[in-house]
Design a protein around this nucleic acid. Structure first.
Lengths: 203, 203
DNA sequence: CTGCTATTAAGACTTGGTCATAATGCTTGT
DNA sequence: ACAAGCATTATGACCAAGTCTTAATAGCAG
């Protein structure tokens, strides 16, 4: 039963080698293991590993589906008008890196991010954190469209601010949301991760 | 000199189409522009655009170079388990680029983005879009904490999926949200941006 | 009419495979 | 010893999506 041992071992390592270098061809693999191309193909078949072009294609697909995070800057979009504690407007130019490749429809979290960061920046406090959010996506946004978000503070009780944000493309509403944002004072260096920031929401 | 105009125009658009969908083959391109495959090849030659397999390979190459950036969090979480149409888990390592500098508290939209993109990826459809979201931030997340988001599809009626997502750091819940996500089929080439995607939410 | 460009076509070759059908071994149970 | 089995290799036909080369055709401009 020596060949059998050799085989299972080879299968294991084959999978590993392919994982390490998904671009490798059967011909190269045959060289690596000192077996024929056909053997490599049978092995792949057994392991359910697709051909190299297919592997490559999948990698590429993943790549283009990879979701780029929102900007890491302080604010998403450009604040073009802010009345602290009252209202504000921000503008975000969308591009296709923010969108699904297939459809060019901008991913929801970018729109959320703009609205959220606008809401937060309206609150007049050292630090403000989002407590809850209830949002609606009213119409898909295509890459390239210019998002104009307007926010106003609807009410305030203590630290709790209710902020309404509506986002438009031209004259059309594309997004609306209500955020509760909490002002937080920092007790200088201490951390208070716990308990400070949570509240009810709609059911 | 009419044909020349037609040609330069085609070249321009060809480059665009390929950029939009790098996976497209010459045969398909020939169909798109109503010319022969050979013409498409000559055009590519003229534009210095490589064949589709090469384009795919390059994308994949980039992807594998960006594996590092997955670790540095340029991506909204890593899908570590997905049962399409049922449930899924994603992990996001937070870092200080995602946080307010003053407090090291991760900005809400990053947490939202992870949850949102997980919810969307669960839906078994060509394209899925978020319709509404109602979310709670239960506890601030500090930069460096590892966010584990679990999602499950609670219900489905037609295209409408209700997805519940809860995100934890260790054993602690830090975020919870309910998303309604809409599956969208594409009617082959047409775009239907309008109207397809909007609904009620909680008050 | 001749020459130019754009386009299409045709043929041979390449890569990296699939799929089906053998032909060899080598070992192992009876 | 011998048939049965598995692993391996070989062979040939086929495919997709290209390459590169060499025409042939169409339409127009000087």
């Amino acid at each position: 039963m020596k060949p059998r041992l050799q085989k299972t071992d080879r299968l294991r390592r084959l999978a590993q080698v392919i994982e390490d270098d998904p671009f490798i061809t059967d011909r190269e693999l045959a060289g690596v293991f000192g077996v024929s191309i056909q053997t490599v193909r049978l092995d792949r078949l057994e392991l359910g590993i697709p051909e190299s072009r297919e592997r490559t294609r999948r990698l590429a697909e993943e790549a283009t589906n990879q979701v780029r995070s929102v900007e890491t800057g302080e604010v998403i979009g450009e604040l073009i008008h802010v009345k602290l504690g009252q209202e504000g407007i921000s503008v975000l130019e969308t591009d296709k890196d923010m969108a699904f490749r297939r459809t060019s429809i901008v991913r929801g979290h970018h729109i959320f991010a703009q609205a959220n960061s606008l809401a937060v920046s309206l609150v007049d406090a050292e630090v403000a954190l989002t407590g809850t959010a209830a949002v609606k996506y009213l119409r898909p946004v295509k890459a390239g469209e210019r998002l104009v978000a307007k926010a106003e503070i609807l009410s305030r009780s203590g630290r709790r601010h209710v902020v309404k944000v509506t986002t438009k493309v031209g004259h059309e509403d594309v997004f609306a949301g209500e955020f509760t944002v909490f002002a937080v004072e920092e007790p200088e260096g201490s951390v208070r991760t716990q308990g400070g920031v949570l509240i009810e929401d709609c059911p």
